[in-house]
Design a protein around this nucleic acid. Structure first.
Lengths: 159, 159
DNA sequence: GTCATCCTGGGCAGTTTGTACAGCCAAACA
DNA sequence: TGTTTGGCTGTACAAACTGCCCAGGATGAC
């Protein structure tokens, strides 16, 4: 279920230089091309690598403002709220969390003023009792996975 | 700075079927291959598309538990805390937010028990005054960008 | 000892990429 | 109105890559 050291190196390599193909990757890793192909196939079918979709930057799309909203939901309204939020494009992700039967969602907006519109749309729904929003100022650690992959590969090699 | 309707269709297509190449994309979109290549180059150099790195699933790596931690930082310790958290592999992202000079970070762990270890490591640092953690139970809306891309493309076509 | 698994190294046909170039069209501009 | 600029099309060609196949060797499990 885990990944070994070669898997780890392969993922890190692909993360750093996504444009290289299987052949080039095999050269960099010092293994046969067939090996890289087999590893990649396995990593994808096992779900470790979900895909190679484009990583789009909301800022460059015209949505430079990010915020996290904590929502308090009325009992039994979870499904409705999920459907509601799913229909809002500015909601980039949504989680249900422990605590107060709450939800946490990530929002983007075109400006601070626009954020108000987004929040109004998000909370303008019957099942939502209360919302508190935290606007992101800096992003010192952008979403990353490489350190975790290296950790997982290292754990494997010791197992 | 924005994207037009063709850009939008291209990004959505690549997000849905990342394995297709430029040639196949041009066929699907009904435009010349050179056009797709030019659009892709522009989208990448303008930063709208940051890359095509592998999307790794922490769950499949052996880290099925996700949590969000809100951290309260001692005045003037921001830089140190950032450096500290940057060194923790289980910290997948970190934001500074409005509110109480706080930070919000996304964590993963191998189990609920392991989460305790991660949290201890995260908060075991002088500059962090207090931390509150919300464990993710469900993820009704996984991180997504397609609806926003469609919205941005639509806004453009009306502008 | 034998089997299953994985990696290697090689080969082959088909396809894609990178790059270039000429023609066409529409919008902007003098 | 005449011209220029920018973007798209269609085509071309060499180089490179992919998908797929196979036989041999090494390793670890039973």
């Amino acid at each position: 279920m885990g990944i070994d050291e070669l898997d780890g190196r392969l993922i890190v390599l692909l993360a750093r230089e996504p444009r290289i193909g299987v052949l080039e990757a095999s050269r960099r890793l010092g293994v046969a091309r067939g090996t890289v192909q087999a590893r990649l196939d396995r990593l994808q079918s096992s779900g470790v690598i979900r895909g190679f979709g484009p990583q789009v930057d909301p800022t460059a799309l015209g949505y430079p403002v990010t915020a996290f909203a904590t929502l308090e939901i009325k009992q039994g309204q979870g499904a409705d709220v999920r459907a509601h939020l799913n229909g809002v494009p500015e909601v980039l992700e949504l989680h249900t969390t422990t605590g107060h039967g709450d939800m946490l969602c990530r929002l983007v907006a075109r400006s601070n003023a626009d954020l108000q519109r987004v929040i109004d749309r998000v909370v303008g729904f019957e099942g939502i009792v209360r919302a508190s929003t935290a606007i992101v100022m800096e992003n010192p650690v952008p979403l990353r996975i490489i350190p975790l992959v290296e950790q997982a590969a290292e754990d494997d090699s010791r197992a």
